[in-house]
Nucleic acid binder design. Structure first.
Lengths: 121, 121
DNA sequence: GCTATATTTAACTAGTAAGTTAATTAACCA
DNA sequence: TGGTTAATTAACTTACTAGTTAAATATAGC
């Protein structure tokens, strides 16, 4: 599984790792903060490994601060997932009138992008 | 990996399977249609297995029609992914004014849901 | 320097995933 | 009935994943 998007999806395919992301969505946390809810179920090295998976997938960044390793969400990879998902939105936005509303938001988004930031794709 | 969302993410963590979904987003297709682009790279049983993964993850449905097995996208699982993603949208919608626009669409969506369909969560 | 705290690395095991080839099932057609 | 097409199942191999325990590294504070 060499491609980045596959790596990201694989990282998300685990409830422990998703719980860690959920925790990080509330704010920065170091490894032992993130480990705390799971230490009944698994060892600390297991937590370290999960964090390495998240980091390699580009979902978090880990920095150094004394003996702690503060982690935070890194949005890029999630954005890639969101962009991929976008192609399928019409399939889950089931009602027809919602589809119309959806198309409007897409157009609004495109315009906003064109004006302010040059984004890839 | 017992939970459904993990199963869905795992199914999406493979470029072959995502390509199959992309094909199905253009319309129904049977197994050999879906296999065609990959038969240089893998055997037909491998394709069958990929489709089984997608089916078990709730991403496609397979029906019977004579000796063919027409497949089509099943949006439910993708919707679950989208719902999960929603909690993180603010992290990848990086610019502050976009965040404002995002909040408006969330409110609009909430209202639309309340009026028309009773959805979970 | 010594010790406690935070985290990672090493070495290993068990289970799962993705692929293979060969054989099998199922439906159609002549 | 026999052949052809479509798809799956069986049995197996290889590689990866998630976890383990034990040992190592790094930093802070006395």
């Amino acid at each position: 599984m060499r491609d980045r998007l596959s790596q990201t999806f694989a990282a998300l395919a685990d409830p422990t790792r998703r719980a860690m992301l959920a925790r990080l969505s509330k704010g920065e946390a170091n490894v032992s903060d993130l480990a705390r809810p799971f230490l009944k179920d698994m060892s600390l090295p297991a937590v370290t490994k999960h964090l390495q998976v998240l980091e390699k997938a580009g979902l978090i960044t880990k920095t150094r601060e004394a003996q702690w390793r503060p982690c935070k969400l890194k949005p890029g990879a999630l954005k890639d997932v969101a962009d991929w998902m976008e192609a399928y939105r019409m399939f889950w936005e089931e009602s027809f009138d919602r589809l119309g509303a959806y198309l409007e938001t897409v157009i609004a988004k495109k315009n906003a992008q064109g004006k302010k930031h040059g984004r890839k794709k």
